[in-house]
Amino acid sequence: MIEFINLEKEYKSKDKTVHALKNINLKINKGEIFGIVGYSGAGKSSLLRCVNYLEPPTSGQVIVDGQDLTQLTEKQIREVKRNIGMVFQHFNLLNSKTVYANVAMPLILAKKPKERIRERVIELLEFVGLADNLNDYPDQLSGGQKQRVGIARALATQPSILLCDEATSALDPQTTSSILQLLKKINEEYKITILMITHEMSVVSEICDRVAVMESGKIIEVGTVFEVFSKPKTETARKFVSTVMNDQFPPSIKEILKEGNRSKSIYQIRFFGQQTESPLISQVAKKFNVDITILFGNVTELQGQSFGNLIIEFIGDDIEIQRAINYLNHQQIHLKEVTSHAS
């Protein structure tokens, strides 16, 4: 559906050259909700703008629906772009136009018949829950309602791809959740491929199928949401995951690590899926001559999967503790020793 091959993008000025995208290779499958996450300046928006060719790449290929945009004429690119809808962070609505007129605008520009325009606009406003607001103006709407208008407008020409550029970052958490559920509904009912750019891992965790993590113009990690959340491979991914998983060490744990009279056999355990329901800790305590103290713990629900996080302390003979640790290392969990430098 969307593929980037050896993609590079540079921005040149008199003083310097900014290498915004570096050797991007990524494939987004038809029907996916795909998230791209990264901090400001990571290259997320540049990558998104290459999909709808607002930014032509410096080199490499951008393939959309089997067509390499770098090999097309301007007219052919316009044809491809008709199948791509765009949802913006700050809505980009025409304040002097009604809700109806804003949604109708792409159809008017496409010179569709008036009756067909009305039929399509009414259908979309009902779909996004704004059937009673068609004669309102943007200034009369809440932020969430404005974004629903923006989404309806993006869907007007029946695109096969929807690009969302920080579509929820200007909204409060409750409104964000409702907009994300609307996007999920669009994906499921209209079978539209959605590419989401965000700096919020909570957005990714709620509706995305797969995610790519960007840093300094490169993709440093890619996988299913479950893969990236359960076993992040890079420090940047781990930091993003921590914002959702709440696995940062509490101040009380840091104080314990500083104490000189503690055994310091402190470990972090992460459980996934059905493992969160297993009485593994009690089994280990019974199997080996050790006491286990749970210092901290929580369980997070992620797209129907449970993620458990525990910080435990082993108390007992060093040999028995090591036997218990060896046993745990052979289970389907993630075990990591916690040191005084933990953060």
Rank of each mutant, 00 (worst) to 15 (best):
N289V: 00
L195S: 01
Y190M: 15
K185A: 08
L180K: 01
I256W: 01
M201A: 15
S216Y: 14
T300K: 15
L195A: 06
N246P: 09
Q275R: 13
G260S: 12
I292S: 12
G217Y: 03
T193K: 02
V228D: 04
L280G: 04
G297P: 03
K218F: 04
G273V: 07
I194G: 07
V228R: 05
T193F: 01
S178I: 02
T243L: 15
S202C: 05
Y190V: 04
M201K: 14
V244W: 13
M245W: 00
Q303S: 04
V204L: 05
C208T: 07
K258A: 13
Q248W: 15
C208R: 04
K264M: 15
I292G: 08
E221S: 01
E188W: 05
Q181A: 14
I256L: 07
C208K: 02
L257A: 03
I269K: 09
P232G: 00
S265K: 15
E255W: 03
D291P: 09
I194W: 06
Q275H: 04
I253P: 02
E200Q: 13
V204T: 09
K254I: 05
P251A: 10
K231P: 10
E255D: 10
L257N: 01
K254H: 10
Q274H: 12
K258P: 03
R262K: 04
S230Q: 15
Q283T: 15
A285I: 13
I253A: 03
K184I: 02
K184R: 13
N261F: 12
E189M: 00
S216V: 08
Y267V: 02
K286T: 14
V204C: 12
G223K: 09
E277C: 10
E259I: 02
I207M: 00
I179Q: 05
Y267T: 00
A212H: 02
E301R: 11
S242R: 13
I281R: 06
T234G: 01
T293K: 14
I294W: 10
E200H: 07
E189G: 05
E235W: 04
M245F: 04
N246Q: 07
L195E: 08
I179L: 07
K231A: 12
K191C: 03
K191N: 06
D291T: 14
K218T: 11
